[in-house]
Design a protein around this nucleic acid. Sequence first.
RNA 1: AGCGGCAUCGUCUAGCGGUUAGGAUAGCAGAUUCUCAUUCUGUUGACACGGGUUCAACUCCCGUUGCCGCCGCCA
Length: 489
Amino acid sequence: MAEVRVRIAPSPSGNLHVGTARTALFNYLFAKKNNGKFVLRIEDTDADRTSQEYIDNIFDSLKALGLNWDEGPDVGGPYGPYTQSQRFDIYPKYVQELLDKGFAYECFCTPEELEAEKQLASENKKPYVYSRKCENLTEEEKAKLRAEGRKPAIRFNIAKAQRAFHKTSMLTFDDLVKGELHVDTDLLGDFVIMKSNGAPTYNFAVVIDDMLMKISHVIRGEDHISNTFKQILIFEALGAEVPKFGHLGMILAPDRSKLSKRHGATAVSEFVEKGYLTDALINFVALLGWSPSDGQEIKTVDEIAKDFRINEISSSNSIFEYDKLNWMNSHYIKMLSIDELKERLKPYLTKYDLTELSVAQYTRMVEVTYEPLTLLSDITDAVAYFFGEDVEIDEKAKETLETETSQDVLKTFTEQSANWEWTEEALHEKLEAFRGYYKEKGIKPKVTMWAIRAAVTGRLCGADMTAILAILGKEKSLKRIKSAMKQTV
RNA sequence: AGCGGCAUCGUCUAGCGGUUAGGAUAGCAGAUUCUCAUUCUGUUGACACGGGUUCAACUCCCGUUGCCGCCGCCA
């Protein structure tokens, strides 16, 4: 069997989309599973919409997700270049071949004429198919049109190609994930393969590139199914081997529409900025359409690759819901070591002066705050009270501090704690006794601690109170408590 | 409009003619904890509809409905 070669071919007209990331993942998995090669090709034939910034984003995102490519624009490979705009000189040869074989023809129709055809079709509620009025132009007519200054586009002659290789107008292929797919090619219009400006169109460039790069399996979104029929015909017209195709269901937003900006993040880099771990993101996205045979959903890409069978991918669309992604992200955060956490949390702590804490204090702070995080960025708010001299007191904490009980607790606390040893271990015991003292007076431990918590952190919920006091130190803790007492008197 | 695809708990899915229709997540309830959360335990919840085929259909076939996609000198 020939070598398995798959590719991901993003168009750099935006940052790497999660949908593209999933397509890339399935290609990568398929390559891994079959000891094949994973190729990255940048499809930038439309110069107006592409930018270097997007290309960099695509590279960075793919790398961050761990989807490393064997051949691509940066690493090269035997079938380069891997950037379509650098391949413009190789397409005309194949256009000419099609022209010579009679599978393509020049079309001199103006945009206005084409627009009129479309208009007419929609008025008659008929599907638009190109009229093919340029198919049989004589040399004389062409010369006349050329003399008028008209530059022809090249169209592919579908009927001719179909007739040359198939008995009827029905074209069929066996999709790797969806099974047999067919279409009546008579319903397809002769599409442009080379624009009048000499640039190849997507449908043509893809075929030439896939052919030259010896791509064996094309795995992509199901929005390409109708293109597939056109592309198969070009492969056949060129006498090239037709690759196998596999079409994945789409990823939809919760409202079942296409996942777009208004639903929140769409680019991998946006998810990362929000505090999602790429390991969690890729794991989550793998579960959209694929499911593990052992029921164990938390898996690395390499583990998934071992268990991956393309024909077992679900052929339906799936909805991108944050619930499970969030759960998975918090799960991945918990799997991180404290040392890793300390580093990865730093970007979200820039608004604080980290030098206020010693290394030991910082470590302990991370230890007592990371567990409930859903996003790495949640740390920003979660540790607010560890920094600065004073704290902002929120509404509920304020209410709590205003009670007589709270004021009494704080008063007693300042008196008793004056000679306490201020280590976490010691504080743990002292506080337990302190709670016990109030419990005998009929005050719930919860309420006792709320007073202290409200005074020291300005909130009613947060990390382990003993640890907070220890990290903050005696001086700062008591200062905050005293100020809470003054404010409310 | 036409053509193509898809259809199991809210969501992601397992199931491949005979199952108490399983898991995950979310939800709910309880336990643990100084609080919120975490963690643990329990629990609600689904085969879109109508015809066939068959001793037997979630599973196979047809139709209906719904949803998605495609019909560019965009990719």
